[in-house]
Amino acid sequence: MAKEVLAKENIQLNLTLNNKEEAIRYTGKILADNGYVEVSYVDKMLEREELTSTFMGNHVAIPHGTEDAKGLIKETGLSVVTVPNGVDFGDGNIVKVLIGIAGKGDEHLEILSKIAIVLSDADNIQKIVDTGSKEEIIRLFNEVN
């Protein structure tokens, strides 16, 4: 049976992370610890960040691996990490919501589309930052069809 793309154990709320590298490593480690990716995928997430920032605006970053990291993905999955006090992604870009992505094949395109819909509403981003409920975050993403 395939894993849930976004399970409760993939969500960590109200963390304090000191810098961009720590934030990306934490987000990727959730995916590795829960069996979605090989541990080395986390390094590919950092490599991707060096190529181009995964900061998307509105206090959101979407760390993911490089194109050549596809073979390190075991299952399609997401991790969600909230950092209410923010973490500096450089150039004054403060991130409060990190969404780690590992997508097998072309599944990441559908996932990105869902994420874009949820995060296009600034109210949803604030709900994600403010909530103490992992279920609420799952509900927000599951509402999108």
Rank of each mutant, 00 (worst) to 15 (best):
Y36F: 13
K96F: 04
I128E: 05
M1F: 07
I99C: 07
Q126H: 03
G92T: 00
E67R: 15
E136A: 15
Y41V: 07
N19T: 02
K134V: 00
A23M: 06
M1P: 04
V60H: 00
S79K: 05
E143M: 08
I138Y: 09
K96M: 04
E67H: 10
H59G: 02
A122S: 12
N18A: 12
G77H: 01
S40C: 01
N34H: 14
V87N: 00
L17C: 05
H64C: 00
L98V: 05
Y26F: 15
I11Q: 01
G57H: 13
V144T: 06
L17R: 00
E143R: 11
A7L: 04
G103T: 01
D88K: 02
V5E: 08
N124A: 10
L78G: 11
A69G: 12
G132W: 14
K127W: 08
K74D: 05
G90T: 02
K8D: 08
L15K: 13
N124M: 04
K134H: 04
D91V: 02
P63F: 01
I24L: 06
L46I: 11
N124G: 09
K104W: 06
K74G: 02
D130W: 03
V118P: 04
K20Q: 13
A122T: 14
A23D: 08
N34Q: 12
A102F: 10
E4H: 09
S79I: 02
K29F: 09
F55K: 13
L140M: 12
A7K: 15
I24C: 03
V97S: 05
K8R: 13
N142T: 01
N58F: 05
Q12Y: 07
L98H: 01
I117C: 02
T52A: 14
D106F: 00
T16M: 12
E21A: 03
K104V: 06
D68R: 08
E143F: 04
A69E: 07
F55L: 07
V97K: 04
D68N: 15
K20E: 12
L112E: 11
I125Y: 10
